[in-house]
Design a protein around this nucleic acid. Structure first.
Lengths: 211, 211
DNA sequence: ATTCTGAAATGACATCTGTCAACTTTTAGC
DNA sequence: GCTAAAAGTTGACAGATGTCATTTCAGAAT
């Protein structure tokens, strides 16, 4: 196969977790050092040779864990999102008891707190480092939010249509509001947080009224 | 300055149009060949050395026109969008006569026809090759759509708030629906087209009712 | 026509991505 | 403990990005 340098980032790139203990430690070290490097110098300075040099290991070794530099960013984003998902799961009971409008408002509230308290996650997920399109962790979150939306919905009415996939679109719309706020203001302002709630609620409401 | 290969794409990268006639011809040749290459082999195969080799010119020469490969894609996308914008301008009279709901529906209709009839534009703009964030042409379109929304709005009511920037968000939301349709189905299906209309209308409607 | 000046073209250099055959270390079966 | 087999590591190679001093060329003034 011919070499294919990153004329285009591979949004599907994913880490291959090693099995042996020493290798696992190095794998984690790569992630830790990458996060550190990102926070110190931003995305511009991020590269596999830099991480390797800082850890005193060779490039090739890192490439056995991560097929592309993007895979490191994906893994970092995934771990941040896993914590957000854990937070959702933790409080799932609260959400189930709410009206769907309040549930959306609450989910958005959690997500805003998450992003506004984590510069690295914000940079990766909202800043465009980790492409939304086809990104596994992102899809996972969307599926999760989608599932949440579906559950919320089914408490009250018939299931949502699959074309358009309303649950996914609702999540996409919320994310879009977050991204715009981050791009224009550097964080998620209360105004954009409210805009996300409104846009999600009103789009979803359409299908409720339609039934 | 140290070399900085594309660990991250530069979404602001823009072409530098040459002044001399021969150079201008070569500049256009690069764009034409790039579009051809994209349609033949997709984004994966796109690179400056490939374009240079197909045109029998040197890499360095192309770099005098375009600071990054991304700048070529941006310029291509910009030209496609210019044509869309021209179409909007052409029919501005029709839009001004409509209700704002119909105007949104019409704008979406034009955009859908545009994307569904241009594989290259679709790939560039909806496929993630050209990042939405901070991309000049994209912003231009958004400002245009935003301006359109503002005009539509002001015919009926008070101006839209600037925080959140409702006009931009409406455009973002529509684009999000398009992107999701393209990602999941390869084109903009009628269902997603309708979803875009609904999502945009209902979000905008909120601010109308609020006044 | 000639000359001059700035635009354009070039190729060499430095750095990064991605692959791979060869080599070393760890693990597991005996 | 010993020894395959599996897992991990390495450095060299190929191709891409981005920079830049140097050379070439186009167009304008004389």
């Amino acid at each position: 196969m011919q070499a294919k340098p990153a004329t285009e980032l591979d949004p599907l790139a994913v880490a291959r977790v090693p099995m042996q203990s020493r290798a696992r430690a190095r794998f984690e070290a790569v992630l830790a050092e990458s996060e550190k490097l990102l926070e110190e110098s931003g995305l511009q300075a991020f590269s596999i040779p830099t991480v390797a040099e800082r850890l005193g290991m060779t490039r090739g070794s890192i490439y056995t864990y991560f097929p592309t530099p993007h895979a490191i960013l994906n893994e970092l984003a995934k771990r941040h999102l896993d914590e957000l998902q854990a937070l959702f799961n933790e409080r799932a009971v609260d959400l189930a008891a709410m009206s769907w409008r309040d549930a959306i408002r609450t989910v958005v509230q959690y997500a805003v707190e998450f992003h506004n308290s984590r510069p690295a996650a914000r940079m990766l997920i909202l800043g465009g480092a980790v492409t939304d399109t086809s990104f596994r962790a992102q899809d996972m979150l969307m599926r999760h939010l989608g599932e949440l939306g579906r559950r919320i919905w089914e408490k009250q009415d018939s299931p949502l249509p699959t074309s358009p996939d309303v649950s996914t679109l609702v999540a996409d719309i919320g994310l879009t509001c977050f991204r715009r706020s981050f791009l224009d203001h550097g964080w998620i302002t209360p105004e954009y947080q409210e805009a996300a709630v409104i846009a999600m609620q009103r789009y979803l409401e359409y299908y409720r009224a339609k039934k």
